[in-house]
Design a protein around this nucleic acid. Structure first.
Lengths: 64, 64
DNA sequence: CGAGGATGTCAAGCGACATTGTCATTGTGA
DNA sequence: TCACAATGACAATGTCGCTTGACATCCTCG
């Protein structure tokens, strides 16, 4: 499951550590999600969506 | 994290077993999600949303 | 009454999510 | 050149999502 986290983060000039802090998860979790190691839990997906002000569907993509 | 699964399912007159089969998960998983024991994974949340033709945000609710 | 469908729940097990801690690599700036 | 931020990665650990299998309860229908 791909996502646009890296792009959305870059648009705001945030580091992975910055994003992790805003989401209240570890930097490693942000990195793992960005690099596709695993998908976030649904609650975390909601926090991400809320943070960027976008629906989940526009951040995470179905497929593969 | 609350959800409207039970209602959406009732509207279509599906049993938990029916829904489980359509989602390709176990009946116990459907039951656990409906009764709030845990939240579905993001991929499963997408499958649920697709099945009901609704955005994830309209099936699952932030809060508690 | 008795059979069967629907629901709720428990246990045991496995893999996925998330953690802390650590290390290597790359790039930028003083 | 040297320090440091940023990123990627690995190990060990703990919890959560999901499974199969089993059992109890409730309801309805013949």
């Amino acid at each position: 499951m791909k996502n646009r986290l890296k792009v959305l983060r870059a648009m705001r000039d945030w580091s992975q550590a910055d994003l992790a802090e805003k989401l209240e998860v570890s930097r490693q979790s942000v990195n793992a999600i960005e690099t596709g190691k695993y998908d976030p839990s649904l609650p975390l997906a909601f926090r991400i969506a809320d943070l960027f002000g976008l629906p989940i569907e526009e951040i995470f993509e179905r497929g593969e």
